[in-house]
């Protein structure tokens, strides 16, 4: 064979080890999930059989499914705008001369490297009724305690607050990088023109940070679908599914109720949502290129 033809051989030989594992744990299971969602749950007396879109009809009638989907939406809406706004504020605060700048930046970023399980363990005690830190502080002011994680009205906000704490510092580093690429002359020019700092932020900085914001938003939405570890420690999805999320419901269906076919149907929904996000990312990144 000529050397030129050998490139096909080398290319595929080098790729093969990774390709086998990728196919085995990403592509094959994706296809298998879609196929499984078309079959009913099998049991000892009734084997699994083809039901077409039957599982999807069941899904449409499942109030818990709609509940977890709504929870996912609220979780995303509650965590993302707040943590992005905080991330921008943090980046602006540490992007200037500041005594102890490295320490401040470290304080903001540290929650990022903790596992969600550890974060949940720490925050669990804040939320514990009566003996927990929040209720103890409230009692100092003579206010009554509250079962933050046991009340359907407060459980999701409680989890959202914790997640904002965990994520804001992570998003901050992307804004820091972006701010460092913005020439300081822009700020000086704005000042000479008599623009207030708020006007400068709103009219100059924020638009320039837009590509970063798009990037962060997409990653944040992705994370909001994948982040469920804390539920295992804090609430197990309860009370009454008030804090349940799609991926946690998939886990429950498969490993608590042993209905892997229904879990597959739920997974297809999650995959579809991720595919939509992938397309959004594609177009957002496209815009980013035009923008610059």
């Amino acid at each position: 064979m000529t050397r030129d033809a050998m490139r096909h051989v080398y290319g595929w030989l080098l790729l093969t080890p990774a390709a086998i594992l990728l196919v085995a744990f990403t592509h094959y299971p994706t296809v298998a999930t879609v196929l499984d969602s078309l079959y009913s749950k099998g049991s000892a007396i009734r084997p699994s059989r083809f039901v077409g879109l039957g599982q999807y009809a069941q899904l449409a009638d499942d109030p818990i499914f709609w509940k977890v989907l709504a929870n996912n939406a609220w979780f995303a809406l509650g965590t993302i705008p707040a943590s992005v706004a905080l991330a921008i504020a943090m980046a602006l605060l540490v992007n200037r001369a500041l005594p102890g700048r490295a320490l401040v930046r470290m304080a903001y970023f540290t929650p990022t490297i903790l596992p969600m399980i550890a974060v949940a363990n720490i925050w669990l005690f804040f939320y514990t009724p009566d003996i927990g830190l929040i209720d103890q502080v409230l009692s100092v002011f003579g206010l009554p305690g509250h079962n933050w994680l046991g009340d359907t009205a407060t459980v999701l906000p409680a989890i959202i607050a914790m997640t904002i704490w965990k994520e804001a510092g992570f998003f901050m580093i992307f804004y820091l990088a972006a701010l460092q690429n913005i020439p300081p002359e822009l700020g000086e020019a704005a000042r000479l023109e008599g623009a207030s700092r708020w006007t400068y932020f709103r009219r100059v900085l924020f638009p320039l940070l837009m590509p970063t914001t798009l990037f962060v938003l997409i990653n944040a939405v992705l994370n909001s679908f994948k982040l469920v570890d804390h539920l295992f420690v804090l609430t197990k999805g309860g009370p009454d599914n008030a804090s349940n999320l799609l991926l946690y419901y998939i886990f429950e269906s498969a490993f608590s109720y042993f209905d892997t076919n229904y879990a597959a149907t739920l997974t297809v929904v999650l995959l579809a949502l991720l595919a939509v996000l992938a397309l959004a990312q594609f177009f957002a990144l496209d815009r980013r290129i035009h923008y610059w």
């Binding site: 490139r7 096909h8 051989v9 080398y10 290319g11 595929w12 790729l15 990774a18 390709a19 990728l22 744990f25 990403t26 592509h27 094959y28 299971p29 994706t30 298998a32 999930t33 499984d36 992705l222 994948k226 991926l247 998939i250 886990f251 498969a254 892997t260 879990a263 597959a264 997974t267 999650l270 995959l271 991720l274 595919a275 996000l277 992938a278």
Partner: peptide, 26 residues
């Protein structure tokens, strides 16, 4: 520049979105 390189690369990138923990059941 091997045969099927672009397609193979696109298939690799799928894993950025569909991480293994989403496919826990399979």
């Amino acid at each position: 520049r091997f045969w099927g390189r672009e397609a193979a690369f696109a298939l690799v990138l799928v894993q950025l979105m569909v991480t293994p923990e989403i496919l826990i059941v399979e």
